[in-house]
Amino acid sequence: MNKTLYGRELKKSWRLLVIFAAVLTMYIVMIVSMYDPEMAQAIDKFQELMPELMAAVGMTGNSDSLAGFLVSYLYGMILLVFPMVYTIIRANGLVAGYVERGSMACLLAAPVRRTTVACTQLLVLLTGEVLLLGYCTALECAAAELMFPGELELSCLLGLNLGLLCLQLLIAGICFFFSCLWSDTRYSLAFGAGIPVVMYVLQMLSNMGGKLEGVRYATFFSLFRPQDWIDGSSAAWWGALALAVGAALLYAGGIAVFARKDLQL
C-alpha cells in the first residue's frame, strides 16, 4: 500500500461518504422512531393486502420485535442499495477512471508497482465500506437505545450487519474487478453497476415468492438472509462465508488483471 495515495483517495471518498451517511442517518432514525408494536400490526395488514409488493422490498414476516421491524424496513432495500451505489461510484473512479483520463500514467511513472496501486485503491474502497456500515451500526444501536432501551439485542444487530458487510464486500469485489478489467468507464460502469443491479432485481423477484422463488438461486443477494441472523441459524454464517470468499477471489482477480494488462496511457 502507498500511504500517500491512500490518504489522497480517502480525502476524495470523504465527501461522498458524508452524503451517504447523512441520507442513511435520516432513514435509520426515522425508521427506528417509527417502531411501535401497534404500528407493526398495521404493517401486517398491508402485508395481507398486497403480499407480493411488500415482499419484493423485503418486508416479510415478524415485525413484532424491533430487530424484525428493522429487517423489514432497512435490510430489504435501504441498507442494500445505498452502500451499493456508493461502491459503484467510488470503485469506478478508483481504477478505470484514472486509466480513462490518462492520469494513471502519473501514478505508474513512479517507483510504485501496479499491484501496489491496485491494492491501495482497493483498500480505499473497503475502508469507505467499513466506515459507512460501522457508522450505520453505531447509529442503529444509539437510536434504539435512546428511543426503546433494551429492545434491541446488540449481538443480533452485530451479526446482521456483519452479514450485510459481507454482501457489500462482494459487491465491492464485482465493481473493483470490472474497474480493473476495463480501461473505459462506460464498460466498467456497465458491468460494475449492471451486475449488482440485475442481481438485486432478481432478489426482489424471488422475494415475491410463488413460482419465482427459484430465482433466488441465481442471485448472490440471497446469500444474505437477515431473518437467518435474527433466528441465529448457522445458514447465516455459511452465507456470509460464501460472500466473503467470493469477494476475496474478485479482489485477487482484479489486482492480477490490472498488473498484467496493457495500458494505452
Binding site: 492520469s103 502519473c106 511513472a109 517507483p111 510504485v112 501496479r114
Partner: peptide
Amino acid sequence: AEQIQKDLGYIPGELALFE
C-alpha cells in the same frame, strides 16, 4: 518497471494530470 522508475523522468505526450 518499478525499479526503472526510481531513476527515470517522464513527460507523457498527452499530459493528464490530477485535474
